[in-house]
């Protein structure tokens, strides 16, 4: 089996880079490496993760400076060539700031940072990110953010809904969405979305934090497994 090349981008202030890296190392065929924020790259990656944290301190709008960093030019090029990109938490904010995903992440409606276990409803399972889940399944990923309140113009939201690009919504344990189950005020309880091409995912919850049964559950591991399965199938087809 050919190996899958994966990179975890390290911005100054990234602090979930090791956690994402550790989640990837659970898969034998993945050999992850770190990508330094000052470096641009031309080589091919099958998968790139923009990890959580506070890139450049996020003293400005979260992800605003990271969106302009040298490495993001290479990430954009890679995305346009089909590399799979996952932006988690701060990574989602950076994807929005850099234009790879639409919309923005506002302050939580409570105006407070929230760290908690969070139920999510899996909205689609025909994406490369969610193929291992059942449509409508309720999973639990932790959230830990101060700016996770997803917002976008109405026409953007309508498009996301129509094109089935919302992969995860905040819900309660029964899968009911709505204000009660919405931790941060996101429009339509949106927790994670993909781009039109389907190779870029941004989500506020942290799948890498629930990738070990010792820490509660391994719901998050399925997300990485879905991506890695899809990438290895593609490799087999090409071979």
């Amino acid at each position: 089996m050919s190996s899958i090349s994966a990179g975890v981008v390290v911005f100054p202030g990234s602090n979930c880079d090791h956690d994402a890296f550790a989640a990837l190392t659970k898969f034998e065929m993945v050999s992850p490496e770190y990508i330094w924020h000052k470096d641009t790259f031309n080589r091919h990656f099958d998968l790139i993760i923009l990890p959580g944290g506070f890139s450049y301190g996020d003293y400005l709008r979260s992800g605003a400076i990271a969106g302009l960093s040298p490495v993001m030019q290479s990430v954009k090029n890679a995305a346009s060539e089909g590399t799979v990109i996952i932006g988690i938490c701060n990574g989602f904010q950076i994807l929005c700031e850099s234009g790879l995903l639409p919309g923005a992440l506002n302050n939580n409606s409570s105006l407070k940072f929230i760290c908690s276990d969070q139920n999510l409803r899996v909205e689609q399972n025909d994406s490369i990110f969610t193929s291992g889940y059942i449509k409508g399944q309720v999973v639990n990923f932790p959230i830990a953010h101060g700016e996770g309140n997803y917002t976008a113009p109405k026409e953007v939201i309508d498009t996301l809904e129509k094109e089935n690009r919302i992969l995860f919504r905040y819900s309660d344990i029964k899968g009911t969405t709505g204000a009660e189950a919405n931790p941060n005020g996101s429009i339509n309880n949106i927790a994670g979305i993909i781009n039109a091409e389907g190779n870029v995912l941004g989500l506020m919850p942290h799948p890498e934090r629930n990738a070990d049964i010792l820490l509660g559950n391994a719901d998050g591991l399925t997300l990485f497994a879905s991506v890695i399965n899809s990438l290895s199938e593609k490799k087999v087809q090409h071979a």
Binding site: D19, F113, I114, C115, S116, A144, H206, R209, L215
Partner: peptide
């Protein structure tokens, strides 16, 4: 709940 208690993925 205002503290990130889970980063580094080792909090049991």
């Amino acid at each position: 709940r205002q503290y990130d208690s889970m980063v580094q993925t080792a909090t049991v």
